[in-house]
Amino acid sequence: MRPLKLLVTLVLFSLLSACSWFGGDEKVAPDVPEQQLYDEALSALEADNYELAVEKLQLLEARYPFGRYSEQAQLELIYAYFRNYEPESASAAADRFIRLHPNHDNIDYAYYLKGLTAFEQDRSFLEKYLPIDVSQRDPGAALESFESFSTLLNRYPDSEYAPDAQKRMQYLKNRLAAHEIHVAAYYMKREAWVAAANRGRYVVENLQETPAVPDALAIMAEAYTELGMHDLANNSREVLQLNYPEYEVRPFKQRSATLLQTATFGLLGGEPPAEPARPVPLADRQRADAQSRASDEKAEQEERSWFSRMTFGVFDDEEESAPAE
């Protein structure tokens, strides 16, 4: 019995000291000076090594919470999280900085980074390269980004980040309006007239100057007609015709299936409901403007007289200065 107790005691001592066999007795690295940690973090940021930058900035904030670089390190940490594709951490770090330093000189930068983080979070990788309809996606991140940029513009209109934030807000505004119309069109197909009319009215009242406004007015006119509110329907229709005379009005509600449509499982014999407008990307708008300018220049060249073309424009000035008969 006694040898057994001795054996158990030896085993326990062996287990307790096992950590020392695998390097558990290694010495803890000494504290790195604050200046050195900050310089190493900046060097990592300049080298695009954002993972290392996050590590250094976290260590700097933990060891020197009241140091001379503490506040700046918190700002740099937001940016490092953003560039390291950690949107949740970046947003949390921005909220923490805004809460702890509401009167900081660079508080506008924190709002801008928070909005930019949500903006990039809303845009998927495939959306940048494929024509994906973003109006069908949850607009939570887009709404958060819009609110951050809006706070930045309202509180700090002279900020150097305000112009870029304003451009991004216009895109987000189109994105949110398109989503509202997508939901309204869904309600129209399900004959939920009140819900559809409310969505359209929200777009008209809060998201003006977006491509979705004519769709919103058309939905309001059609929904109010179905509800028997003819005065509101006529008002919506008049506003639509006055401001968008070229808009092609098509019904958004789901029409009753015809016999041919039923026999062909909806492939033939029916006109599909109207589709809501979608936000046009900036690159597509610039490309369309360039094509329009090129077409105008070509048309102007074709309108030149035969004499001007034959003489390669040499006598254009004389021809313009000649008095009309």
Rank of each mutant, 00 (worst) to 15 (best):
R2Q: 08
A118I: 00
A110T: 01
A118H: 13
D108W: 01
Q286V: 04
A185K: 01
F82K: 10
S148T: 00
Y79S: 10
E127N: 04
F22Q: 06
P279L: 06
L37D: 07
E205M: 08
P30K: 13
L130S: 04
Y224L: 05
S20F: 09
L232S: 14
F13D: 00
R68Y: 10
S43A: 15
E191F: 12
S124T: 15
E127K: 01
E46W: 05
F265K: 13
A73S: 13
G269C: 09
L143A: 12
N234T: 09
D48A: 08
Y109P: 02
A18H: 05
D48E: 15
Q72N: 11
A233S: 13
E238I: 10
P3Y: 08
S145I: 03
G67H: 04
A53Y: 03
N154T: 05
G269I: 02
R285S: 08
A177W: 02
R96K: 14
R168D: 05
S135E: 06
F315C: 00
R304L: 15
L227H: 05
E55S: 15
T225L: 10
A47H: 08
P279S: 05
R123S: 06
S17C: 08
P273V: 11
P3Q: 09
D122N: 10
A290D: 11
E238N: 15
Y224T: 07
R168M: 10
E238T: 12
R68A: 14
F149I: 03
V239D: 09
A184Y: 00
A44L: 04
L260W: 07
A41G: 06
T258Q: 07
A162Q: 01
N84G: 13
Y64D: 07
Y112R: 02
L60D: 00
L217V: 01
N235Q: 13
A294E: 14
D25F: 07
P273C: 12
F82L: 12
D25A: 11
D289W: 00
Y50Q: 04
D231R: 05
A18V: 09
E120Y: 12
R63N: 15
Y109L: 10
Y156A: 01
Y224E: 13
E120L: 12
P273D: 12
N103S: 13
A195M: 03
T262S: 14
I78G: 02
N206M: 11
W193N: 05
L267H: 11
L52A: 14
M188H: 07
P281M: 06
V203N: 07
T9N: 03
F149K: 01
L75R: 01
S236M: 02
G269W: 02
Y79P: 01
F307R: 11
A322E: 15
P157G: 07
E144L: 09
E55K: 10
V11F: 14
L217P: 01
S295I: 06
N235S: 13
A53H: 06
S43P: 00
L217T: 03
A290E: 14
V280G: 02
Q58S: 14
P214E: 05
F13I: 14
V194T: 15
A184G: 10
E226W: 03
K27L: 12
R96Q: 13
S321M: 11
Y50V: 11
N103T: 12
L10N: 04
F119D: 05
A216K: 06
G115N: 06
P276C: 08
G228L: 01
A197F: 07
L42E: 14
P163K: 05
L242A: 13
M229H: 11
A177R: 02
A197M: 07
R190K: 14
L75Y: 08
A93I: 00
Q208K: 13
L130R: 03
D231P: 00
L153D: 02
